[in-house]
Design a protein around this nucleic acid. Sequence first.
DNA 1: GTTAGCACTCACGCATCAGGAGTGCTAAGT
DNA 2: ACTTAGCACTCCTGATGCGTGAGTGCTAAC
Lengths: 364, 364
Amino acid sequence: MNVSRLVRLVVFLPVGALVVELNERSLSILEAIVEGHIASGEPMGSRTIAKQQKLPLSPATVRNVMSDLEEMGYIVSPHTSAGRVPTDKGYRFYVDTLLQVRNLSAQERHNIESHCQGGNLRTQELLKQAGRILSNMSSYTGIVLAPRFTSTVFRHIEFLPLSQGRLLVIFVSRSGLVQNKIIEVDGAMPTAGELEQITNYLNNSLNGLTIQEVRSHIVDQMLEEQALYDQMLSHALTFSSEIFSADVEDDVIIEGVANVFNQPEFSNIDCMKRLFKAFERKHDLIDLLDKSQQAEGVQIYIGSQSEYQEFEGCSLITANYSNGKQTLGSLGVIGPSRMAYSQVVPVVDYTARLVSRALEIESE
Amino acid sequence: MNVSRLVRLVVFLPVGALVVELNERSLSILEAIVEGHIASGEPMGSRTIAKQQKLPLSPATVRNVMSDLEEMGYIVSPHTSAGRVPTDKGYRFYVDTLLQVRNLSAQERHNIESHCQGGNLRTQELLKQAGRILSNMSSYTGIVLAPRFTSTVFRHIEFLPLSQGRLLVIFVSRSGLVQNKIIEVDGAMPTAGELEQITNYLNNSLNGLTIQEVRSHIVDQMLEEQALYDQMLSHALTFSSEIFSADVEDDVIIEGVANVFNQPEFSNIDCMKRLFKAFERKHDLIDLLDKSQQAEGVQIYIGSQSEYQEFEGCSLITANYSNGKQTLGSLGVIGPSRMAYSQVVPVVDYTARLVSRALEIESE
DNA sequence: GTTAGCACTCACGCATCAGGAGTGCTAAGT
DNA sequence: ACTTAGCACTCCTGATGCGTGAGTGCTAAC
């Protein structure tokens, strides 16, 4: 299967306009520059391009074209006597219109498969494995956004009294995701019997709803309940509104950070530091992954285009995973803009598919 | 409170022998070298030492002493015309016999306290906070070894059938730690009623035992059970032996890795990479933290003395935390050997005390 | 429109050099 | 016998200069 179509789905720029701007020859020279630079890490000079070129052109001609490309903002030269390097715009264009993604070898597919079997792995564990294999196969850093609490489907709830009016609440989603939280009980702690009642009530009435639905359900019930007074119901509603209201911290799995050290472009300490800070704060990363959930297929965010400064010089390749019915989260790879896109895109795509399949089976 | 006593508890070298080797003057010069180097990061020359010295000595005299210290292996000079830098042995000696730890200011104590309140934080959350505050207050990297599964006390178990003969098991410790695991069921899945029976049986019979005790209890029961045949008991035992046998991955919380970038001694990329790999693999870190649980009080591991190559050039300051009855885990700070020991030791000590207190309250 | 030729720029590596920090050794002082 | 002043020596550091090579832009010829 050739997945290049996937990438073409997420073109952001008005490609038509650009293709007019660039003729066949410019395109193939831009392609040579981007691919050459990705392969070597060095700025590409006109001679090098002219030599490897299929259509035989002299370095001088290539220079003229490069000059045009530079004027249009697709490439820059780091200094006067160096070759040219793609800009973010250049990468963007390459990714949107020139990129030919490679097919995965049987070996590679097998490698991913063996790590993304649902089997009797907990969801959390499965996602971690996925992050790890993404990192290994790409030699960059793998990231996985765990399913949002809000979009999970209620399966089971359990209360355990702790000391001093605190109550441990354990909540299980249909896909087997376990969350827990401690709530403070105002007033008297319910007895074991009352707790059992509350538990039963919630388990019955919330079963099969998403957390989002659970929330509105509770609000509705609370309004209704004000009329007819019921101690148990009152408790159940107060508790559950507290449980389901507060946002559970979103979980991002980041695997293979040490790979960052292998990238020559991150040899700049400041750049690395920024990236690691981003990994630690997670917030912007979550934002970005969250955004990517809006769209279908494999998506590629490049450098500064992703409006988060800490990811300057970085690209992010993501894809969503689902349980067959709805999107649950997204996963992908983060690396330098000079990333082996054609290698990584199919890896991300295939991993997302396998994770989806595994979760689909589990949620049946 | 002066906590310097704590440190003296963990002297590893035969101090007596060494003190004979070093007279008062050598000691104070070694101290000046170590502290000067910690403060400045530069090798210390004889002139600098001679100047700041209380006992007025000429640089030449200092040089003689330094020469002796070098011969004994406490200091080295990176090259001919540089000053001297402490060796690991030098740091070790300094830490064991010369270190005067600073008292925490009210401000600092308050800062730690505000992040280590038990309150209605889950244990996991509390430990994460502790890691974060360790990192912030020390400007190095904070690490926390979560309580071992084996040493937790059984509180509650719960079974939830998933699809295809898989069973989600949720297990809660008395301290409110929640673990979950998926097991495969051979043969027919028990009915809801049977599961309830099994749940009740286990909850009653295992309550209050540590996991270690649970394990041996199960083994005993299994032997006994072979005689009298009971379907429910059989199931309960098979399940729980599966649940409690496998090792749950130990959990290490690592906070503030980005601080590594601030340490000039880690500007060496290779060194940094090694450290980050260690953070990612976690295994050796767990080993080390685990070892530190054997001993009491604040412990300091220095560089290569800790037999793990990836921590060469690093020091680790740890202390245990407990729930008042038994040690649960350990926490601390990892940074360069050139660490501000006198600053960090009291932070680690105080944090460990506060975490212990918080867990003590919770486990009541 | 393409290409050959040429002058120009600039990073990079290398050697050189002065300055300075620090040492070890020796000999003189207490 | 210990301490110290003096001195020669080492070697890192930063600045400077130079040659080289890669690459460019421009112009003129094809």
